[in-house]
Design a binder for these strands. Structure first.
Length: 312
DNA sequence: CGGATTTGACCTGCGC
DNA sequence: GCGCAGGTCAAATCCG
């Protein structure tokens, strides 16, 4: 089947390309301020009316597209979860049960080698391995979700900053054996009430890719949401890698951004929450559609879903 | 001055 | 048991 081409064409979410505003229909303006439409002169009042009409139409179109995008994002999340399920299943088959120093370590290497191109690396339960649960029963039972997010950063950006909407406190840095670049260890600044940790390290293969590994789930809203919105609009406050990627997309368009968690609210203080939301949606769509790996991964997921639907 | 970051020391798990 | 490597601690330092 030809899912990839379908994805390529249908998922062109880039606002600039997906939304021709038909401004060419706007009547031409004459030097005296009047307009010529179909050979007829229009007054300034009529021009204002036309512009307002156009504005309303564009606003409605914008709203519709934003809704479409939101729905698409939800579908994307569902598909992503399926992809992660499939990937974790196939990984379980690949990994031999012996010669593993640490399950997390080799898992990490696998991901670095194979998966970082997807942007979102995984959202797998680390405690699913039988071996782990046997050797480290106490820790692994307690251990919460582990998810990985990879970010392509500006070449000039040498720091290990991954913007995901939360505030982090660095508590350590270590140079690991298999990677010349140091690994930074962060704790959620809401600790100890929030148990989430994150490890950030540049990919050994591609120095422009930063891999962030999240452990645990936040039990609070991100500071950016606490500040800018009166109430939570998201269904869950748990860590959502897709949202992390959304924020990360902003780093591309705002390479001069400052501290990680304060990025959105501090850079756009004049925006209301609706504008922020729309801005985020547009940025996410742009960053996603620019990434050929995302469309490829999505195509694979869709084809997998289709084939499974056929078999059912 | 208080909070965040840095960095060397220490702890712990794992393989040999 | 020893050595190695990843992870964490905590004192020193930095910064607003």
């Amino acid at each position: 089947m030809d899912t990839s081409s379908w994805v390529d064409t249908s998922l062109d979410l880039n606002p600039s390309s997906a939304r021709p505003l038909r401004l060419e229909q706007t009547p031409k303006k004459e030097s005296n301020g009047n307009l010529i439409v179909f050979g007829k002169k229009l007054s300034v009042k009529e021009e204002t009316c036309n512009l307002e009409e156009e504005l309303n139409r564009v606003n409605a179109e914008n709203k519709k597209l934003a809704e479409t995008l939101t729905a698409m994002c939800e579908k994307y999340n569902a598909l992503r979860n399926q992809v992660m399920d499939l990937m974790s299943k196939s990984r379980e088959k690949e990994i031999s049960p012996s010669k593993k120093r640490k399950s997390e370590n080799s898992d990490n290497n696998n991901n670095n080698d194979k998966n970082y191109n997807f942007g979102i690396i995984g959202n797998s339960e680390s405690s699913s391995s039988d071996e782990d649960s046997c050797k480290k029963p106490r820790e692994e039972i307690i251990k919460a979700k582990v998810s990985r997010v990879s970010v392509r950063t500006e070449a000039s950006n040498t720091g290990l900053i991954v913007k995901d909407g939360y505030q982090w406190r660095k508590y350590g840095q270590k140079v690991t054996r298999d990677n010349p670049s140091p690994r930074a260890y962060f704790r959620c600044s809401f600790a100890p009430s929030c148990p989430v940790k994150k490890k950030v390290q540049r990919s050994a293969d591609d120095q422009s890719v930063v891999v962030a590994t999240y452990e645990g789930e936040h039990n609070h809203l991100p500071p950016s949401q606490m500040e800018s919105t009166s109430g939570p609009s998201h269904g869950s406050s748990s860590l959502n890698p897709s949202r992390a990627t959304m924020s990360l997309g902003l780093t591309k368009s705002n390479p001069s951004g400052g501290g990680e968690a304060r990025n959105i609210s501090s850079n756009k203080p004049e925006m209301d929450s609706a504008q922020v939301r729309q801005y985020l949606v547009e940025q996410m769509a742009t960053s996603l559609t620019k990434d050929p790996n995302f469309t490829a991964a999505l195509a694979a997921a869709i084809s997998g879903r289709m084939s499974s639907a056929k078999s059912n």
